[in-house]
Nucleic acid binder design. Structure first.
Lengths: 227, 227
DNA sequence: TAGTGTGAATTTCTTCACAGCG
DNA sequence: CGCTGTGAAGAAATTCACACTA
């Protein structure tokens, strides 16, 4: 992909965008420790990223550093939050009030970071009207109404795989353009809609690949001491 | 990173490794629909990847295709499973028997895809000895014993952020080298240990960035019909 | 003929290295 | 001097395009 065009200077690439939240997380930590400024070196150490990359990434946001000193922690938090669209809260609506949905609704980390879970929607009429950890369960037909007055809210798909495509379509029809999808399988969306998929079993399979290499290494080292 | 060296032909790159499970998922779906062979075009469509990339990725595994025909679905499933180290089950141990841990233990998708959740470990002595959805909760000190006789098993960190580093260390000390980490924050591991981090709030922040671009577009299109 | 396998071209991402500023 | 900001170099990943073959 070719980078995301922007208001200010040139473009921010995908790779950079996906690291900004990482920096933000680290900066908040540094601020909590009372640090007033931080160098690219220091921020890199905190975020697990090398210093040159930090500088290049931050340079996309503007010239916020001071040569010989570093970056002002609070100021950078402010600018980065703005860039990430975190200046205001974004409501989260979860499709699928099952196990995973419950866990997500209970997860404090969302609300804490400005993403309050405001509602479930579920296709099962028996669940509609109930409420889970204080979050009400609505019918899918109420989605448009839920989105109203909550511009820029985010949808989470926590349905079984079979329900994912229709959940996504319901979100899109209701005007939601940012979706986090936990269901395995391909979903098709129109242009202008962003979907990020988190497939947990798929993560385990990737780990399995690397684990196997270790397995082999262990077996090998029983015979020789090869790497 | 520089690619993962291999037994057979050259190397498989990181990017390719992370797509293999995607192909596998699609192939299993195709097999269930009774497809016997599939072209790179068809597999790409099913996996959401372009055909040239599919061919290049698969060529790392070997010359498994037939010109003019495509790939044998069952055979490719077999070879890919082997490559991913899925020929045998890999037990999963979850650190942290909280909300998220519960949801993960209940998630059928793990067991179904060859990753049975065999145990929790938790630092809270009040939880030790109990069991959640049929999965027993052990003390951290029992970890080494749990890993014994389960080579190549995988650890999942589902603790609060504050407990993540020590959970990871406990896993590593017990001989686990593949870890899926749901806690936000940097964890440090020795060489030879693979950690994949899934930070849910971070995913939402990335979505927020793209959502903001849409927001702006909406505001703009109230004045002009740009875009 | 349809579709693989792969060199070569292209694009994207990372890292280097250093001029220049506070 | 210390550290940013950035061109330029390098590496990795993607895409093109086509020779080749079952």
């Amino acid at each position: 992909m070719q980078g995301v065009s922007r208001h200010g200077r040139g473009t921010i690439t995908e790779a950079t965008v996906s690291r900004l939240p990482l920096y933000l997380r680290s900066l908040v930590g540094l601020a909590a420790e009372g640090e007033l400024t931080v160098s690219s070196e220091g921020l890199g150490r905190a975020a697990g990223v090398n210093a040159a990359k930090v500088r290049k990434d931050l340079s996309y946001l503007g010239n916020y550093g001071t040569r010989g000193v570093g970056y002002d922690v609070e100021f950078l938090i402010y600018e980065m939050s703005r860039e990430l669209g975190l200046s205001r809260e974004r409501a989260v609506i979860i499709a699928g009030a099952g196990n995973l949905g419950h866990a997500l609704a209970n997860y404090r980390g969302f609300e804490d970071r400005g993403f309050p879970v405001v509602a479930f929607v579920d296709a099962d009429p028996r669940k509609v009207g109930s409420s889970v950890s204080g979050v009400p369960v609505h019918g899918v037909d109420e989605l448009a109404h839920l989105v109203e007055g909550r511009p820029g809210c985010i949808g989470i798909v926590a349905t079984p795989a079979s329900g994912a495509q229709s959940a996504v379509e319901a979100f899109v029809d209701a005007g939601i353009t940012s979706i986090l999808d936990f269901a395995p399988g391909l979903v098709v969306v129109p242009d202008g809609v962003t979907v990020r998929q988190v497939d947990l079993a798929l993560e385990l399979q990737i780990l399995s690949f690397y684990a196997q290499r270790t397995d082999v290494g262990v077996l090998e080292s029983a015979e020789s001491s090869s790497r």
